[in-house]
Design a protein around this nucleic acid. Sequence first.
DNA 1: CTGAAAGCGCTAACAT
DNA 2: ATGTTAGCGCTTTCAG
Lengths: 345, 345
Amino acid sequence: MTVVPGSRRASISDVAKRAHVAVGTVSNVLNRPEVVAPATRERVRAAIDDLSFVPNGTARRLRVGTITTVGALLLDIANPFFTEVARGIEDRLALDDHTLMLASTDDDPERESRYVRLFEEHGVVGLLVVATTPDVTHLLAAMARGMRVVLMDSASPTPAIASVSVDDEAGGAMAAGHLLSLGHDRLTFLNGPHAVRQCRDRSAGVRRAVAAAGLDPDIALREVELPTLNAAGGDAAIRHLLDGVDGAPPSAVMCVNDLVAIGVQRALRHTGGADFLHRIALVGYDDIDVASELATPLTSVRRPKHELGYRAADLLLAGGDAGVVPEQVVFQPELVVRESSLAAG
Amino acid sequence: MTVVPGSRRASISDVAKRAHVAVGTVSNVLNRPEVVAPATRERVRAAIDDLSFVPNGTARRLRVGTITTVGALLLDIANPFFTEVARGIEDRLALDDHTLMLASTDDDPERESRYVRLFEEHGVVGLLVVATTPDVTHLLAAMARGMRVVLMDSASPTPAIASVSVDDEAGGAMAAGHLLSLGHDRLTFLNGPHAVRQCRDRSAGVRRAVAAAGLDPDIALREVELPTLNAAGGDAAIRHLLDGVDGAPPSAVMCVNDLVAIGVQRALRHTGGADFLHRIALVGYDDIDVASELATPLTSVRRPKHELGYRAADLLLAGGDAGVVPEQVVFQPELVVRESSLAAG
DNA sequence: CTGAAAGCGCTAACAT
DNA sequence: ATGTTAGCGCTTTCAG
């Protein structure tokens, strides 16, 4: 390895010179080695090693126009849900030797637009995005320029864009149905704001399940809208309910996500002792990794996170031929029953 | 927006034609708008909008050679520790409008090499890598070609490569020191394999603290090497110890990470009831997000995860002038005391 | 202030 | 089997 520090990277013509061949020949040993004679092939390979030559992908891309980079826009890469989605994307891309560009929008439409633009300039072949708003005109514009786009986590607001999502209404119905089948006839749902589509859908599912059980949702269901969807929110909400100012304390509680449920568990443990914990049936949502590892393992509605990302990347890479109707994939969630919901009564 | 579907992306010369100017002028309104007359500038801008023109970053990069992409290689993006590191990287890059390429190596040196190569061909300006092995020759080779490299999470095996890491020996000493200061004179350490540097360092720290307390490590410390560093591993290990076949049951337990500690909590809750849980002091490591939200909030040694990524990206972007000695940053961990270690005795 | 033209590193078509 | 060369889309001199 002959490297002169400070000198610029070796180019294909440096290699050609050193091997006493033409640049085209070097390009050939790189891309179609079988067409070049073994002797020269070896000579070129030696020169490549000597110069520690790494092909300039930028030049190659400019020339052939084929791109192997995909951009993904998640709300927050540090959120365990999206983290697993990201891993799914990555695993699918690796199959085709594509690389992943990643950014968090923090649910800010401006950041989303900025990154769409940035990624587009970077020449990604397509965009996988968890949209921050139902207004997707900037994405449609990008598609008009040849960009492929697949939405993740929520159904597409337009049939023109492919999407991969999870049936949250079914998820809500599952959680409620489970509790109802255990004999509970009063449900409490710690939900997020209805402005968020996922929350709205889950609420609809819950109401559907309650009605299907022959109960009146207005009586059998108490829905609380949490300001913050984390453990602190769940903790505070359940304490408030246990105070009984709002009617009888709950016997069955559904949460909009696992973190809220973990907060509920914490509050129960601290206020009522182990007692309450075994008297209140608790169901989370998402089934994040720790859910199964908790002291009281959490019953949860699992969303296929890895699969979600994997499939979205798959649609992007495989599909997208002009004229084909963009696919709308909806995954079904799955109820994972654990100890937390099996209250003694 | 006049877009003919199926037609190729508008190029700068399309814009030039439409605005009746030369390509150089278009380039100027893009990059130095002040040098072009307001009238033509507007004309060009109109053409750009008309054609929905987005500059081809690939061509630009080839021409100017300046790159705004950074590659990061983590062991596993789905691991909450790396996830927060990634977020730190992202936040720093956003400051300079750089984009992040991300991949998980799964601790496989082959994957690491493959991605280093892939990223290099993609023309990233530098690499942030959590190394899978102490053999960094491929990284040194990349540096010889002008690539910037910063190692993360473990100190650099060579002064030629910058690194950002956390003092794990101090972390181990902190955990042990805390338990010793609470009056425990028998410590159990559920550690990972000593082949892993981080585990070795933590063990050294623990032994140092034990010795500093005037105790004989060979007597006061029982170290168990876990096969799997997850909740199941912690669960199984503590159950084994509680059986007493290996001597008296422990009163103070340190874990190599929080997940193991969560497994211990679970096992304690299930075997001995709430009793054990309040009798055994427990300390985790990393301070992942849920640690504070658990039913029994977990005392843990916090590693500055976000800061780690942020600083590594900072070194990459800011530093790296030829001739300057690569910086070796070592962060100090921090003990976060919560309920789990405050056993009643 | 604007136009013309060279060239970044590479590939592919065409010659030899 | 190997050499030659045009050109991918852009920036940047250099002339006008």
